[in-house]
Design a protein around this nucleic acid. Sequence first.
DNA 1: CTATGTCGGCGGAACGTTTAGCTAATCGTT
DNA 2: AACGATTAGCTAAACGTTCCGCCGACATAG
Lengths: 337, 337
Amino acid sequence: MATMKDVARLAGVSIATVSATVNRSAFVSPELRRRVGEAIHELGYAPDGIARSLKRGRTQLIGLIVADITNAFFTELVHVIEAAIQEAGYSVLLCDTDEDFAKERDYLKILRTHRVDGVILAPTGQPGDYAAFQSLEQRLPLVLVDRVLSELNADTVTVDNVAAAFEATAHLLDLGHREIASVTGPLHLTSAQDRLRGFRTALQQRGIAAREEFIRSGAFREEEAMAAALDLLKGPNRPSAIFVANNHMMIGVMRAISQLDLNCPRDVSIVGIDDFPWANAFKPRLTLVRQPVEEIGKTAVRMLLERRKDDAERPPVHHVLKPTLVVRDSCARFQAA
Amino acid sequence: MATMKDVARLAGVSIATVSATVNRSAFVSPELRRRVGEAIHELGYAPDGIARSLKRGRTQLIGLIVADITNAFFTELVHVIEAAIQEAGYSVLLCDTDEDFAKERDYLKILRTHRVDGVILAPTGQPGDYAAFQSLEQRLPLVLVDRVLSELNADTVTVDNVAAAFEATAHLLDLGHREIASVTGPLHLTSAQDRLRGFRTALQQRGIAAREEFIRSGAFREEEAMAAALDLLKGPNRPSAIFVANNHMMIGVMRAISQLDLNCPRDVSIVGIDDFPWANAFKPRLTLVRQPVEEIGKTAVRMLLERRKDDAERPPVHHVLKPTLVVRDSCARFQAA
DNA sequence: CTATGTCGGCGGAACGTTTAGCTAATCGTT
DNA sequence: AACGATTAGCTAAACGTTCCGCCGACATAG
């Protein structure tokens, strides 16, 4: 592979001139510019980003760590973040932790080795897991998305999960439901905590006691949600509505309903969090709380790049975005059986 | 950020010894190993992958270019490829072209600048677009997935799209359908071509003439598929079944059915290509041809890394994997209206 | 006691850039 | 005519590694 030296020799100039030409970093006479251009073309020269990174001290690489790319929310998030990063002249180093903190830690180390210029992280760890990081990650610019980690005082972008769950639950309450179940995520994640909190607050506010046996929390996974829903729905005094905290879980719940030959929304109303492409392509079209994914992604990228510029020890900023309820057909007015 | 020099100074050894210790590339006495280890720990040293890459001539980076990460097939593919690459000690540089060849070309250039060790590419270009590449891409190890590009004689991993479409169509024929429509992708992509071919072959084999007005080809997108399906289904002599060539299009078709208040499979039978998580969570549970995504991904990674080792000018190899029909509820036996 | 061999560890030259500082040439000013 | 100012382009020193070749110490053999 041709190097600047080859180009310089062929064009009869010094490598400094080649560099100046390639980077437009200094005036180069038209004549030399032409000769350099020709030599580059002839040799098929392309600058070596590695050498350049070494010298410049930055790589134009951003690490993106998500918990689970097959979750449609993260898919979409990766999509918009990738586009925004590319637009800004950087590239994405993708890491998928599969909700496994050990992997996440490994990835962080790898990203550090690759000398990425910054990291966008959707963390999976428990509080306490990150104690070592503050010092270890010698101020690598970091933005947290979707889930917060108070101990890691970094910039964050999240949606108001309490509000999301509150709205979803309030919608159910408005329709007359009282026996409402909740299938929610692992409670060490702030997103899951907040969603459960919003759910409880909505009930409380109407003076309705939450029935603890109707609250199921487990991993953000299809199988567990299906098991939970099956268990919830098979008994004689089943809830008339279920609030589902995540889209993987939604699949599980819908499959449970399908398997029990129940009809949604006639037999049970369902409301969830996270919109996704298929949500309105089937029966029933799902009523959901939509997160502003595009805004989350763009904001995260913007914050990261700003943080890079003036890496002053400016205190972290936290963006909290508003979710919106999208009403479709999966919730019906309550009627006694 | 601490460098080997710092470590060497603190441990009282040469940087060569630090390097040997870090890489286990030469025998280092236990005593020195201990001192170096301590110094590394104390300084929080981590090797600089950039300098290492420059010296070694490889980056442990693999470029992954997909046409559209929001397509569940590619989502899953990215998921398994990322895992396999990570497992092999490499990292993924993710590029999403949004089915735009101009972007694809830019990405290829960027990847080259980043000096990736290889590229896995799901191309979007038309034949002819890649003419310049052979020489330009100075033998960058390359594996094509999902879609082939004969002019780019690289290794490929695909599924037998002809067989996939054939099986799907045959299933419809077996159920007695005769007026079968096809909503298929852009015909400059081999995957779309092959799927249409399989569809035609199945009809032909039973001596049934394909009705050209029932064949719609457009971008692999939801909106266009919805428009096509709307048009196909609103007339009085509508097809009794539709073969849908891709999962984005499937969403569009299902939405059209929902909008027209038709019932699938009673009014129209649907079979598609590409399984996805939601396919059996709703009514109707979709009958689909499933691609062996995991095998595609793992094979692609394996081929790429092998190609790296002995970069002999060994001729390209082409893996063609078998799809399987998954019968669920979206196709019913034909009955005259 | 010297010659030979072994082996842990070191020095230093790369890898392909960027960039500070320099040189020689050209120019305008007095 | 002499002198600084300006300028195009060059030289060379980094950046943080890897790894070849060497050196000195020690062991063994003759």
